[in-house]
Amino acid sequence: MKILVCITNVPDTTAKITFTDNNTKLNKAGVQFIIGPYDDYALARAVELKEKLGGSVTVLHVGGADAEPQIRKALAIGADDAIRVNAEPVDSYFVASQIAYVAGQNNYDLILMGRESIDFNSGVVHGLVGEMLGIPSYSPVMKLEIEGTTATLAREIDGGKETLSATLPLVLGCQEPISEWKIPNMRGIMTARTKPLLVVEPVAMEEFTAPGNYSLPAPKGACKMIPADQAEMLIKLLRTEAKVI
């Protein structure tokens, strides 16, 4: 079983988001970066599948060298080697093209990633990669079992759950409870230092979008407090003031 896990390097969920350079760049000062939480689930499941079925787990990241601590963490969690495509991601299409190029040169049975990155929240990279490689893609996958060349997976659909089986190779966007996040142990951290991390240059491609400036939402007005003993006043306000009921 050869598994590729694509990870993003994103600001921690609790990070305060601000911008610099006339609102054209994310202000990274004081922001803690992490492996995308959904990608972390994908990685954990990949490591479990490798332990069960044998094979290898390769981690792939499209981005700058500042992601290397997160890539090393993924190696410490149990991936065998890593590839970093040395490029500033332009958009989902760009990232997917780079992933598809790397994947096209190695025959992976499974390509896993999070259902979406928590910075741009697009949730389209798995679909793009699947189409670029001409193989099926499914998301969000909450359960994944492999038997031979067949994957059985449960995924969320609107208001429910669908279980399906499909033949490998597949591209899957993952979310909990596919697995539990893994915390690297000391041995993992030590061995991660010497595991191979290959840096490759991006393939040239046409860019379909150009990023413009960023903005922050208008600050929220003060919360209107209603005394508990006049709770019914809330319903009145929701009807007459907010006009939502």
């Binding site: 988001i17 911008f19 958009d91 741009f120 860019e207 379909f208 979008t209 150009a210 990023p211 413009g212 400036n213 960023y214 903005s215 922050l216 939402p217």
Partner: peptide, 9 residues
């Protein structure tokens, strides 16, 4: 938490 303007070419 934020918005971004994107030009589609």
């Amino acid at each position: 938490k934020a918005f971004s303007n994107v030009e589609i070419k």
